[in-house]
Design a protein around this nucleic acid. Structure first.
Lengths: 142, 142
DNA sequence: TTTACTGCAAAGGGTTTGCATGAGG
DNA sequence: CCTCATGCAAACCCTTTGCAGTAAA
């Protein structure tokens, strides 16, 4: 992890390693507050401001992708082309790999040819009901 | 426009019509502040709070799609499946129709089959350099 | 008449920043 | 050593809300 951060030109501190590791080990797209609470478990002295500063550095250096929503920002450590499945009922965000057959690459190519836009990255959000929420007839409250 | 709003179950007021018309006639994904300034040209008495309230109503009723970014929310009146081309240099957001060959529908189908997720809507953002910026000067952000 | 929208101002909440201290390269 | 990160608190900015008056249905 330390080497990974150095590779990206990020000055290494204990706090930054802790934040980066929380992100790398999370698949639930945590908010800054979530990251703060998780880091604090093993690093009680860190502050929310440091978490925000670190998240901004990690975002600028391409270590995570910030996803802005109405309620605030969530952070995605999955750097591969993928779709975010956002359940409008329970609020969960799951990743779905979608580029096995080059679907995203295909889209990028279409856009470049059609409008001369040089694509450098993307964010694909799909809103709907996750299997858990739409599948259960007697839906559970969460 | 009045009929359109009524169809969506939106109580019709002069302010709401004005906001809705600004949105319908804008292709630059205006912010709430942008909408406010444009509406105020022909409706000087409206307030920013009313614009926000109206934008929320129009969003809930599916008249516009709110797009949350770091700097705030932008509003997209294009309800057809499309991609947002976001220039990281000049900040402009342009729409690109991308579903001529059913690319979005294809993605939605892949996701439904793979993960049992019922897709109800989507947001496709592509970050990069627009034709104007990548063509004029060769500046490469990292 | 009944409901709910407007305008105004003030509060809310996620995020950023200034400053003194402390740690990394 | 010199630069930059941390911690703390206050500030910031976008957005929401409470209230009194007013307009839509």
């Amino acid at each position: 992890m330390i080497a990974t951060l150095r590779q990206r030109g990020i000055r290494v501190t204990a706090q930054r390693v802790a934040v980066a590791e929380v992100l790398a080990n999370s698949i639930d797209h945590p908010s800054a507050q979530d990251v703060y609470e998780r880091v604090k478990l093993h690093f009680p002295h860190i502050t929310l401001a440091t978490v925000y500063n670190t998240l901004n550095v990690l975002s600028e250096k391409g270590f995570v992708q910030p996803l802005h929503f109405r309620g605030g920002t969530r952070y995605d450590a999955n750097l591969l082309p993928h779709a975010n499945l956002i359940c409008v009922e329970c609020g969960r965000i799951a990743d779905a790999s979608v580029d096995e057959d080059g679907a995203v690459a295909n889209l990028r190519e279409i856009l470049t040819k059609a409008s001369g836009f040089q694509v450098m990255g993307q964010r694909l959000d799909f809103y709907g009901s996750c299997a858990r929420c739409s599948g259960s007839s007697a839906s559970q409250p969460n």
